[in-house]
Computed example of a mutant assay.
Amino acid sequence: MDDFLPPPARVFVAGHRGLVGSAVTRRLTAQGYRVLTRTRAELDLRDARATAAFLRRARPDAVVLAAARVGGIMANSTHPVPFLEDNLTIQLSVISGAHHAGIPRLLFLGSSCIYPRHAVQPITEDALLSGPLEPTNEAYAIAKIAGLVQIRSYRRQYGASFISAMPTNLYGPGDNFDPATSHVLPALIRRFHDAKEAKLTDVTVWGTGTPRREFLHADDLASACEVLLRRYDGDAPVNVGCGEDLTIADLAARVAAAVGYRGRITFDPSRPDGTPRKLLDISTIRALGWAPAVPLAEGIAQTYRAWRSAPDTPA
Score class of each variant (00 low, 15 high):
residue 109 L to F: 12
residue 123 I to R: 09
residue 35 V to D: 03
residue 90 I to D: 05
residue 112 S to T: 07
residue 66 A to N: 03
residue 127 A to V: 02
residue 119 A to D: 10
residue 106 L to M: 10
residue 109 L to D: 08
residue 111 S to C: 11
residue 131 G to Y: 11
residue 120 V to R: 15
residue 45 L to A: 07
residue 139 A to E: 15
residue 126 D to W: 01
residue 129 L to Q: 09
residue 130 S to R: 15
residue 110 G to T: 04
residue 110 G to N: 09
residue 132 P to L: 07
residue 139 A to W: 11
residue 82 P to V: 05
residue 86 D to V: 14
residue 94 V to N: 01
residue 52 A to K: 10
residue 58 A to K: 05
residue 131 G to D: 13
residue 73 I to S: 01
residue 139 A to K: 07
residue 98 A to M: 05
residue 134 E to R: 07
residue 124 T to H: 01
residue 61 D to I: 12
residue 118 H to K: 09
residue 127 A to C: 12
residue 106 L to Y: 09
residue 79 H to Q: 14
residue 106 L to F: 07
residue 46 R to C: 14
residue 133 L to N: 10
residue 101 A to T: 12
residue 90 I to E: 06
residue 125 E to Y: 04
residue 83 F to K: 12
residue 33 Y to S: 03
residue 73 I to D: 03
residue 59 R to T: 01
residue 48 A to H: 14
residue 71 G to I: 11
residue 96 S to I: 00
residue 75 A to H: 09
residue 71 G to C: 06
residue 109 L to S: 06
residue 78 T to Y: 11
residue 50 A to D: 03
residue 128 L to T: 11
residue 114 I to G: 12
residue 133 L to C: 12
residue 145 I to T: 04
residue 85 E to Y: 09
residue 37 T to K: 11
residue 80 P to N: 04
residue 143 A to E: 13
residue 51 T to S: 14
residue 53 A to G: 11
residue 121 Q to I: 15
residue 90 I to P: 00
residue 113 C to A: 12
residue 62 A to M: 01
residue 100 H to G: 01
residue 56 R to G: 06
residue 141 A to E: 04
residue 40 R to W: 09
residue 61 D to Q: 09
residue 81 V to A: 11
residue 50 A to F: 01
residue 88 L to M: 10
residue 130 S to K: 15
residue 106 L to T: 14
residue 68 A to D: 13
residue 41 A to G: 10
residue 41 A to V: 14
residue 103 I to A: 06
residue 76 N to P: 02
residue 109 L to A: 11
residue 48 A to M: 06
residue 145 I to P: 02
residue 143 A to I: 05
residue 64 V to Q: 05
residue 42 E to R: 03
residue 32 G to C: 08
residue 106 L to W: 07
residue 57 R to A: 15
residue 70 V to I: 15
residue 102 G to Y: 08
residue 61 D to G: 14
residue 129 L to P: 02
residue 99 H to R: 09
residue 106 L to P: 12
residue 79 H to G: 02
residue 134 E to Q: 15
residue 30 A to K: 09
residue 89 T to N: 11
residue 43 L to P: 06
residue 120 V to S: 10
residue 116 P to V: 03
residue 95 I to L: 06
residue 138 E to R: 15
residue 42 E to M: 04
residue 41 A to H: 11
residue 132 P to C: 08
residue 88 L to F: 03
residue 76 N to H: 13
residue 74 M to W: 11
residue 78 T to H: 15
residue 43 L to C: 12
residue 72 G to C: 14
residue 66 A to V: 08
residue 138 E to A: 15
residue 138 E to T: 11
residue 59 R to E: 03
residue 86 D to P: 06
residue 137 N to P: 02
residue 37 T to R: 05
residue 59 R to M: 05
residue 110 G to V: 03
residue 40 R to S: 14
residue 107 L to V: 03
residue 89 T to M: 04
